[in-house]
């Protein structure tokens, strides 16, 4: 139960930073090129926020998968899951993971599927953050939007299963994961919009790592990579 507070906090902070409120927070914290440089421009702040959401979503998925595996030990240990009523909805992860027909997506436990999903999206995000001006960034942004769009579709399918097949049994952990996926879709769409509008690389406080490498290189010797450059 304690873990839920940790990953919920990570996801919530990430979601806030990814919105326009994130700029206000960054200004309030005095983000600049020297201090909290990753918060100093839109692109790096959103990518950093996505990293927080991805980490939170990944831990939430581990938690859900762990609860399901623990339940399937038949050891009677189910205390780690959460059961409560929120807005009149019955959140009961034990019942959710105990439904052997619906606790998986084509045989893949929901939690494990979440882990795989966040790893793939994490790869796109970390890659874009590492080299925002690389040629493949456009492709990775499109893949990010498509993957998170697929994730949202699967999330809606799970909501359908929980509402109509399981008669209104929801899982708090799964719901947090679903909200994270939806937030990531919005974040990816926002990044793609920035790229299309040409605001991807800002001069002010832009901590593009490749740009820094270029600056470092322009100040010294660059080793030729092919003979003809000698």
């Amino acid at each position: 139960m304690e873990w839920i507070f940790i990953y919920s906090a990570l996801i919530l902070i990430g979601a806030l930073l990814a919105t326009s409120l994130g700029e206000t927070i960054a200004n309030a914290l005095g983000a600049s090129e020297e201090k909290l440089s990753w918060m100093a421009n839109d692109r790096t702040r959103k990518l950093g926020a996505m990293q927080l959401m991805l980490l939170g979503g990944f831990i939430a998925s581990i938690d859900l998968f762990w609860i399901q595996n623990k339940y399937m030990e038949y050891s009677g240990i189910t205390a780690a899951s959460t059961a409560m009523d929120i807005f009149g909805l019955n959140f009961d992860t034990t019942t959710f993971v105990g439904d052997l027909e619906n606790n998986n997506f084509f045989g893949i436990p929901w939690g494990f599927g979440g882990m795989l999903f966040f790893v793939i999206i994490g790869w796109f995000t970390l890659s874009i953050k590492a080299e925002p001006t690389a040629t493949w960034v456009d492709l990775f942004l499109k893949l990010g939007v498509l993957s998170t769009g697929f994730g949202v579709a699967v999330s809606l399918y799970l909501v359908y299963i929980q509402t109509f097949v399981m008669d209104g049994v929801y899982s708090l952990e799964a719901t947090i994961i679903q909200l994270t996926i939806f937030s990531l879709l919005l974040a990816f769409a926002s990044l793609q919009k920035m790229k299309n509008e040409g605001t991807w690389v800002e001069k002010k406080y832009d901590s593009d790592p490749l740009d820094k490498k270029r600056k470092r290189r322009s100040g010294g010797y660059i080793a030729p990579t092919i003979d003809s450059e000698e």
């Binding site: 970390l126 490749l210 660059i222």
Partner: peptide
């Protein structure tokens, strides 16, 4: 070339990171 040389390094490095976390 300078703009693209590190491209493969970037996403391959990220791939290894996420595989490690997984």
């Amino acid at each position: 070339r300078m703009r693209t040389d590190d491209s493969a390094v970037g996403h391959m490095g990220s791939l290894f990171q996420v595989i490690g976390i997984f």
